[in-house]
Amino acid sequence: MSMIEVVAPGMLTTIQDLGRTGYRSSGVGPGGAMDALSHRVANLLVGNSDDAAALEITLLGPRLAFPAGAWVAITGAAVGAVVVTADGQSTPVPAGHPIWAPDGATLACGQCAPHGCRSTLAVAGGLDAPLILGGRGTDLRSGFGGWQGRALLGGDRIPVAASRRKPPADRHRVVVLPQTASPELAPLPAGSPAHSVASPPIRVLRGPEFDAFPAASREALFTGTFTVTPDSDRSGCRISGEALSPSTMTLSEVVVAGTIQVPPSGQPIVLAADHPVTGGYPRIAVVATIDLPRIGQAPPGASLRFVEIGLDEAQRLLRARERTLRIFTLGLEHLR
């Protein structure tokens, strides 16, 4: 079996897929890639099914060795990756292009670009992590899944499943494949859009306790600008801005990824992939599924604004993106 070897792990590199379902009643949340769109695109680029296990890189990327060559693709935040062949030749990995990392090559990543904080690195065939509770992703809070339930460490040797994609004729040369040419698909190959001050607001739906908040707080949610704080992690994106007056909630209730909770401090928490399944803070709003990847990409210091949409609009947006992904997938198959 093929494998990749971790030379240096980066800041927090974990194996992720599209998460677990069916175990909330045991207290197990979804987990999975923080930027599911980039995850899916990276997998599609190397010929995997979109939910195959891949590496999620956080802020500072790893250095990986490929004893046997492999097709890889990197999406999400730009991470300045280069492939260095056994004879010392160095080739940058362009975002959103499948690239052949030759036999004996290493792939070195730098820092995630300032406008995103996570990158997905997919390997053709998918990472062969054990299937636990229906998922191959790492649950860091409970210490199971992925690679031994933890972030990667130097010396780890991660098995890679057999790929449907053929190696190039010369296994010792770097090969970069073109991505699909259609301009309407331009935003997809690199994955999720970057964050900047000019980024459009994050689309949210009213939460169950929205009406329990004072009018000033409801207004502040949609007029204010919030800054992502450094204590954000895979369980939640903590944001600070004009403090929202806390409301009260008597009992813990269910929460989902994207739930915006307001703890007594008045500084909201946007729950992310590794969230607990229940929470006791009032839920002022919930991020629409279409924009969850943007929460997963929001780096410390990023500015976030929120705008309200309805359920119908949330569904329409999601269906439209899914159509684009389908066309993109078909385009990739035509290239082969």
Binding site: T21, G22, Y23, R24, S25, L251, S252, E253, V254, V256, V277, T278, T289, L311, A314, Q315, L318, R319, E322
Partner: peptide, 22 residues
């Protein structure tokens, strides 16, 4: 429907928004 989770006084029904209309 992809998951069902009870709390003290509710049952949460989690669904794939591409496969079910609320």
């Amino acid at each position: 429907v992809v998951d069902i989770a009870p709390t003290f006084n509710t049952v949460a029904v989690v669904f794939d928004p591409l496969r079910a209309d609320p």
